[in-house]
Design a protein around this nucleic acid. Structure first.
Length: 344
DNA sequence: CAATCAACCTGGGTGC
DNA sequence: TGCACCCAGGTTGATT
């Protein structure tokens, strides 16, 4: 489902087309899609505004509009932003339609007319590109938010989101401090967006495998060395996801409706029963924090002691002593500048 | 404050 | 073929 790499891919796709365009009209086909302020006022607040920039924070997509207001989109589980070819009939589950007009980008017909020298017609009716952007969401979890400005945006997100994993604010020291306060299983803790913004079930499992950490190990029990490994593993897993334009296991598509490629490169997620890419041991699946969790029982240490056993002796091995040496997390082949197997 | 879990939804898959 | 049930997972909010 859409996590940081998927939202980032959509952000980059959309930026090409909607920055500079004006929101002529918003259709709410399912009013429940509006989380803020409400479905009655949302369209009027947004209509007529021009899109100045498209940003991302965690899994939120942020449109900066030309009156300083902010339009937030969260795709949750099955949400998609789809930029259909002109004239294509609407698919099922379209919850909102943004009608966009771009005067900077003439429509194809007008460009053709201009190339034939029929410029007078263009002068009478200015060249413009009218397109629709569809918010599609089978399960109706996705939401739209309209905020008055950057202050309101900050107020909404500051208590909800930790640092951006791919920016300088995500440090080994910061991660160590945050994990030290948490007793829960590392898998569940990494899914908490207040700790770190943008990880979801797929990339957490991938990062834990890359770091050689067992998903149920208590967060605060990680050694400094393990936290350092985890830090690099998170960055590597996310960068690979972006390089592959996201992971498509079910609903996810980019803005053109195309599947991502990263599902071909996953190391453990939904690969239970198949051989670990490092050691060949069958990948296991268990439930952690209510989520399906995939890991290599060999590379990712031992399961914790059962509740009736003494806990003085740590049931966890140090991750470094049995990690696969073939693929350390800090040698991600898809990182910028790396040679080798990055998928274009 | 931290941890846990139901609830929000729909469609696909499974077992009977 | 039908039906009951489970599962998928991002986030919120209630409860412990």
């Amino acid at each position: 489902m859409p996590e940081l790499p998927e939202v980032e891919t959509i952000r980059r796709d959309l930026s090409q087309h909607i920055v500079g365009a004006r929101i002529a009209r918003v259709e709410l086909l399912w009013p429940g899609v509006v989380a803020l302020p409400d479905a009655d006022t949302f369209p009027a607040l947004v209509q007529g505004r021009r899109v100045a920039a498209v940003r991302r924070r965690g899994k939120y997509l942020i449109w900066e509009l030309d009156d300083e207001s902010r339009l937030l989109i969260h795709l949750r589980m099955t949400g998609r932003l789809y930029w259909p070819p002109p004239g294509e009939p609407r698919a099922d589950h379209v919850r909102a339609v943004f009608h966009l007009i771009d005067h900077q980008r003439p429509a194809t017909d007008n460009r053709r007319a201009a190339s034939r020298g029929r410029l007078s017609a263009d002068r009478r009716r200015p060249a413009e590109d009218r397109r629709e952007l569809h918010f599609v969401d089978q399960r109706k979890f996705g939401r739209l938010y309209r905020l008055a400005g950057e202050r309101e945006l900050h107020a909404l997100l500051v208590t909800k989101l930790g640092p951006e994993p791919l920016e300088s604010g995500f440090t080994r020291e910061g991660l160590r401090d945050a994990l030290a306060r948490r007793r829960g299983p590392i898998k569940a803790v990494l899914l908490d967006q207040r700790l770190l913004a943008g990880l979801g079930n797929i990339y957490v499992d991938e990062a834990l495998f890359r770091a050689g950490l067992h998903p149920v190990q208590p967060a605060q029990s990680l050694s400094a060395a393990q936290v350092d490994l985890l830090h690099g593993a998170i960055v590597a897993a996310l960068r690979q996801g972006i390089a592959n334009r996201g992971t498509t296991l079910a609903a996810y598509r980019d803005a053109w409706g195309t599947r991502g490629l990263n599902q071909e490169q996953l190391l453990v997620f939904r690969r239970q029963g198949r051989p670990c890419p490092a050691c060949g041991t069958p990948i296991a699946k268990m439930r952690v924090g209510g989520r399906g969790t995939h890991f290599c029982p060999q590379c990712q240490g031992f399961a914790p002691a059962r509740g009736d056993q003494p806990s003085e002796v740590s049931p966890y091995r140090v991750a470094g002593d049995r990690r696969p040496t073939a693929r350390p997390a800090d040698e991600d082949p898809t990182r910028p500048g790396a040679t080798g197997t990055a998928v274009a």
